[in-house]
Design a protein around this nucleic acid. Structure first.
Lengths: 185, 185
DNA sequence: TTCACTTTTTGCCAAATGGCAAATGGTTTC
DNA sequence: GAAACCATTTGCCATTTGGCAAAAAGTGAA
């Protein structure tokens, strides 16, 4: 639970208010934190493990839109904010340890912790900018560059995630990725 | 200036406070709203015209990361929030009419308008989600699909932006895009 | 209209990637 | 260890896309 201590800008008392609402939980490999069609009612903090966001494209193929490693907050933002059904899934890629906040509690912090909204805004902006900065360069790169870029960005994840997930994240076929990996090494 | 009236959640008085700080301005085609290396000190609202965000990749090539049409707020978020030099450019693709807020004024609204932070959070989340939802599907699509997807998403922009900008946005070469366009029509 | 300049299209060929199916390798369960 | 199951690699070939340079089309100024 002290993995959340890196959470800046909060003093001891505020941190106490936050932790009061935190519930520890686990997700085993393959299990879902949120699912398409359901409404997101929880915010998670990943203290151990790897999760991925994915959705089904028009052809019904799974497309991984993001990987996330330890020490990050996550939520299906659109569904959570607007209380509409999710269009995608959040799934544990490995066994995970989580800290979970209910929607009611999370939003309640807005009134109990001074400046909470601004803090949340910072967390969200930072997370989304990170994602955008990671995806943008992929688009204009060829498959090999995509893979090497990924290796540089996520050294931690290499060999901890199935090839098929990674391929769909990079926008390449699994076989191409396999060949590229062979060529690189 | 009433193009901002679509701005939800504000009553008349709050809207007044906001408009007090607004300054009208223009950008002519090709001019920059913010530039790499400089620190963003303004938030803009695009009332007429088209802008694009772009940066230089490792090979020095211009890469368009986003197009934006009328009736949207824009800012170089990372630079503005953290007062660090921008890594990219915001440029007028056509002649533009803008409404501009200085950083001081914009942030001051946090104390004068009740719930301002939350409103800003909503705007930012919405904008970034939109961008993410637009870019994500491009990655796993072939060039033709990228183009047709773009046409569906931005019918307004077709034929108002140079081919080279669009090609770099879609992650295809200009000649490929030209051939695809020919094939489609 | 003509010239100079920029943008877009086209031709030619090489290189990269995809599609599909079979083979190989790994892991789990009994 | 054997069987069943899942993940990864490989072969073969068709298709797509890129690279480069020249041609064509479009634009604006004198």
């Amino acid at each position: 639970m002290d993995s959340m201590s890196q959470f800046g800008s909060l003093d001891k008392q505020q941190m106490g208010l936050l932790l009061e609402k935190a519930k520890e939980s686990t997700l085993s490999k393959g299990a879902y934190f949120s699912e398409a069609g359901k409404i997101a009612r929880q915010v998670g903090f990943l203290s151990a493990g790897i999760i991925r966001f994915f959705y089904h494209d028009d052809n019904g193929q799974e497309v991984t839109s993001y990987f996330m490693a330890e020490r990050n907050f996550f939520v299906d933002l659109n569904s959570f904010n607007n209380q509409v059904p999710s269009s995608g899934y959040i799934q544990a890629v490995t066994d995970c340890k989580l800290i979970v906040f209910s929607q009611r509690d999370w939003q309640g912090l807005s009134t109990t912790i001074d400046g909470w909204d601004k803090i949340v805004q910072q967390i969200i902006s930072k997370a989304m900018l990170e994602k955008i900065d990671k995806i943008n360069p992929l688009l204009s790169a060829d498959a090999t560059t995509r893979y090497t870029t990924f290796l540089a960005q996520y050294p931690i994840l290499t060999n901890r995630i199935p090839l098929s997930y990674l391929a769909s994240y990079l926008g390449i076929t699994q076989s191409s990725l396999s060949r590229i990996r062979k060529k690189i090494r």
